[in-house]
Structure formats: structure tokens, C-alpha cells
């Protein structure tokens, strides 16, 4: 379920911000002794588009996986004020996750890959295939339902992966450097398509990237991270209104924002 109805402009402009997930003092020490994260406080508002920006090794993936519930923090708390909670009080937010690799099952078709989360939920076959086909249309892959991953290009596989993450109509879409392995032209297209999806569905997005340009282009808010120990140094709001398009990429406003974020990133790395 999306908590915001479809809007055409900026999803947050029409609704008062409500916290979807609140992290307080989150720390992660791995068994190897690496202190991957320390003292992370982060609130993600419903409908927001937040980027986690930082050099590799600063704990971006670790933070994303903690939000996804794939790894437990060693200290600190993670609250989902609006999500369903089970009898034990454990929150079960509806999540979508996109990895850096498309992570598709090579033995089955695009539509069945997309339908996987629904199949795991036990949804009936015809219904889930219909929903999966709809998700594929949404990412621009109508007509490729029965293609095997092998037959798809890198960008198309990534679209399938995004469709799979969206098919459950999640509250939050977690993306770990999803476009880092793609060429620039494909990446720009997918950036724009991701923004349309965000506007049309109202899904909250947490986007991990090491590209200043990508984070400024996409986000409403950027959490600038630094390493050793991994932490959030600063949060920067990117005020430029949505919808943004290619014209934004060449605007003075974009260039200024990129300078600000670059400076913040350098400062964070020096700190």
C-alpha cells in the first residue's frame, strides 16, 4: 500500500511529512571487528527520495541492509511508526530492494521473476502474473514478459529488477547503487524513469550511490556519509522542484547543488 495517492508534481508538496522509518544511534560492528557504522541518526519521511552518498567502504550498503532488516544493528534502534507489527512487536514494513546486480533468476522468464515476491506471499498464479505484467509495463518492458534474463541487456535486466521490487507495492524502495554498472546513457534514462515511477507511485526511495551528480539529480535529500567509522556527516536538502528532467541536468541550479554537495563530501572525507 502506498500511503500517498498518485500525484503529478512533488509528492511531498501535497502532504505533511510523516516519518516512515526512524533510526537512532545505529551502530554496526561486524564479527571481523570492523566498525562499519557508528551513531547513525536518520529519519526518512514517507514519500521522500533520500540518497546515501559516500565513498566506497563508508557503510552505505550496511546501512541499507539494516533498514531492509537483512542485518541487525549491534546497537541503536530502528522504528517503523506506520508499519504493521506482529504479536512480538516486530515491524514488517513492505520493502522493495534493488541490488547493484539485477539479481534475477536465470532459469525463468521476466514476468515470473517479477512475480516471485507475490508467489512467496502465496498469491494465486493468474493474479500474480497479471500484477507482474503490469509492473513490467510500468518500467517500460511491455512485450518482454516471456524473455529470459539472458536475452535482456543490462539496462533491461535492471528494469526487471525494479519491477520486481515494485510489484508488492512497497512502502519503501531500497536501492543499492542500482545503476553503477550501466553505461551513462542507460543510467540517465533509468534515472528519469525512476523519477517518474517515484512520482506516479508515491513510493519512498532510499538510493545508495557514490555519484554526486546522480544523487543531486534524483534526491530531495542527501545524507553525506564518511568512512572509518561509517557515519552520516551531513544532510543536505536539494530544493529544486520536481518533476525534474534533462533540462535540470544543465541548469545553473543543478550545478550549484552539485558544488555544494561535492564540497560537503570532501569535507566529510577530510573530517
Amino acid at each position: 500500500m502506498n500511503h500517498l495517492g498518485p500525484t503529478t508534481g512533488d509528492p511531498l508538496a501535497s502532504a505533511a511529512p510523516r516519518a516512515l522509518v526512524v533510526l537512532r544511534g545505529v551502530e554496526k560492528r561486524f564479527g571481523t571487528g570492523t566498525l562499519a557504522l557508528r551513531g547513525v541518526d536518520l529519519t526518512i519521511q514517507t514519500g521522500d527520495f533520500v540518497s546515501l552518498l559516500g565513498p566506497s567502504g563508508c557503510g552505505k550498503s550496511t546501512l541499507l541492509r539494516i533498514i531492509a532488516g537483512l542485518i541487525a544493528p549491534s546497537a541503536g534502534t530502528l522504528d517503523w511508526p506506520r508499519a504493521e507489527h506482529d504479536a512480538a512487536g516486530v515491524a514488517h514494513p513492505r520493502l522493495g530492494f534493488v541490488f547493484q546486480e539485477p539479481t534475477l533468476m536465470p532459469w525463468t522468464t521476466a514476468v515470473k521473476n517479477v512475480a516471485l515476491p507475490l508467489r512467496l506471499e502465496g498469491m494465486a498464479r493468474s493474479e500474480r502474473l497479471e500484477r507482474a505484467a503490469e509492473a513490467l509495463r510500468r518500467v517500460g518492458l511491455a512485450g518482454f514478459e516471456h524473455a529470459y534474463p539472458r536475452a535482456l541487456s543490462g539496462g533491461m535486466k535492471m528494469r526487471v529488477s525494479i519491477a520486481r521490487a515494485l510489484v508488492t507495492r512497497p512502502d519503501i524502495l531500497l536501492m543499492d547503487e542500482p545503476f553503477a554498472a550501466l553505461d551513462e546513457i542507460t543510467r540517465f534514462r533509468l534515472n528519469n524513469d525512476l523519477l517518474s515511477i517515484w512520482r506516479e507511485t508515491g513510493v519512498t526511495v532510499v538510493f545508495v550511490t557514490h555519484s554526486v551528480f546522480e544523487s543531486v539529480y534524483l534526491s530531495r535529500r542527501i545524507a553525506v556519509m564518511a568512512a572509518r567509522p561509517g557515519r552520516i556527516e551531513r544532510e543536505i536538502a536539494i530544493e529544486a522542484p520536481h518533476p525534474r528532467d534533462e533540462a535540470f541536468r544543465t541548469s545553473a541550479e543543478y550545478a550549484a547543488a552539485c558544488r555544494t554537495v561535492s564540497a560537503a563530501l570532501e569535507e566529510a572525507m577530510a573530517a
Partner: peptide, 26 residues
């Protein structure tokens, strides 16, 4: 089995049986 796919199955709270049939066996 691909570690990321295993994570994906965990994310969707798949049962061991589902993980076996839909992921590990294929």
C-alpha cells in the same frame, strides 16, 4: 545459490521450503 537472491528470499520472509523449491533446487 546467488547470495543476493538468498537475501531477497529472506526479505520476503520465504519459508525454508520455498527457498529450497524456488531457489536452491533450480
Amino acid at each position: 545459490a546467488d547470495h543476493n537472491l538468498v537475501d531477497l528470499f529472506r526479505l520476503y520472509r520465504a519459508s525454508r521450503f520455498q527457498q529450497l523449491v524456488f531457489l536452491r533446487l533450480p
